[in-house]
Amino acid sequence: MAESQAILQTTDVVETNERSLFRKLIRNRFAAFGLFIMLLLILTAIFAPVIATHSPDKMNVTKTLLGIGAEGHLLGTDNYGRDIFSRLVYGARISILVGLGAVLFGAVIGSLLGVIAGYFGGKFDSIIMRIMDGLSAFPFILLAITLMSVLGQGLMNVIIAIGIGNIPGFARVVRGQVLSVKQSEYIEVTRSLGAKHSRIIFHHILPNSIAPLIVYATMSIAGAIISEASLSFLGLGVQPPTASWGSMLQDGKNFLVLNPHMATIPGLAILITVVGINLFGDGLRDALDPKMKV
């Protein structure tokens, strides 16, 4: 009887522990704000056709460079008469797509390389990590520009180019984590039970290395969004007339004096998004750190 009561009590503790991660996150106001921004962005991207008031690509030469709120255009129009609000809403899709896609690409390949380097060590480690060092020797944006000129333009290529730039970071984070997890006694136990390397890696090492990976991935999304905006600003990213925050910024820069909100609005959208994601990432890191007491 006492035994089963003890069991019940311990189960209670576990449940509160799992719930408390979310609670910890929400109690941190900055993280809650970050989460709100991210959810807003995601919902905007999903429901873009519903939210947008106009077609994002439809030009109207009679209504160019309208001010905020003029003639039913919530945030005015650009130099081709396209509705800035609708372009902003559709631009969120590109940002989200590139942000998630590039990070996923970088995380999958980077983690795989990091795991191989960390787990097998020796020559694998030296070769893989030296290549990673080589990749990260290039400034991120320079690397992306080079890759874009090799790959050619297009959304998919933007994702790949930024994704490749993300590989070394993930490889390093995962390798470090694997190096420490691999020393754990339960890994040796698993080996002593006759498990294959692949099983040890995917079933035991990766699940125990996931926490820092999640935090790093969240932070990288912000970086990827900025990179996409930068590439589009430079004309190497998503091709016109597709709306992207970077290309909107590029269009707006020629009208800074005449119509400053054309550039400031997409600029602000990028700023708020990136700050929001970073705040969320910070909060997530603190919530996952057992040593931090909120």
Partner: peptide, 22 residues
């Protein structure tokens, strides 16, 4: 690998770290 865990198995020193926490 076929022998490990099947014909010969092992118990380790520290039971607190011998089990995978996840």
């Amino acid at each position: 690998r076929d022998i490990r865990g099947n014909d010969i198995s092992m118990i380790f020193q520290d039971p607190l770290t011998s089990l995978n926490p996840v």
